[in-house]
Nucleic acid binder design. Sequence first.
DNA 1: ACATTATGCAACATATATATTACAATAAAG
DNA 2: CTTTATTGTAATATATATGTTGCATAATGT
Lengths: 71, 71
Amino acid sequence: MPPNKKMKAARTEIGLTQAELAHIVDVTRQTIGLIESGKYNPSLNLCIAICRALGKTLDELFWPDNAIYEE
Amino acid sequence: MPPNKKMKAARTEIGLTQAELAHIVDVTRQTIGLIESGKYNPSLNLCIAICRALGKTLDELFWPDNAIYEE
DNA sequence: ACATTATGCAACATATATATTACAATAAAG
DNA sequence: CTTTATTGTAATATATATGTTGCATAATGT
C-alpha cells in the first residue's frame, strides 16, 4: 500500500499530532503512523473513526482511485 | 456492526451470489456472508476490492451515514 | 547547544480477520 | 414434493492488525 498522504494532510491541517489522533480514535500512535506510511491495512471501523475525527469521508481519505502512487 | 444492506443490495442488483463475489475478491463466501450480516469488521483493502467488484465507492457501501455517534 | 516534542522503527505479545471444513436451514426450481 | 442452489452458522487453524515497550532520529523551541 502506498503512503496515505491525504490522511496525513487532513490530520496536520487540523493541527493534530499522530499521538493526539491516536488517542481520539483509541489506538496507539504507532498504528496511526503505520497507516499513514502505508504499512498497515486498517479495519473499516478504524477508517471510519479516523474519518470522523478528521471531518472527512471514506472516499476522501481512503479511496485510491485518484492516487498517483509515488514511492 | 449492523447488517450491510447496501452491500447486499448492490451485489444482488448485479446478479452475483455471495460465492461469486467471494471468488472475484479472493476471499471465502463465509467472509462475504459475515460482512453482509454485520459480524465482521473487514479490512480496508477488502472493502475496496468489494467496491470495485460491485461498481460502487466506499462511501456508497461502507459509510454509516445514518449512524448515531457518541464518545 | 540543550531540551522537548513528534515521528520512525524494531521485537515480541495479543486480538481478531479470514481460511477451512462441515453441516443445517432456506430458497428456488424441476 | 424432491432436488439443487444459496445462505447461515459453528469449530478450529492461520495470517495479520494492533498493542506494548523501548530506543533512535528529526524537528522545534529556548
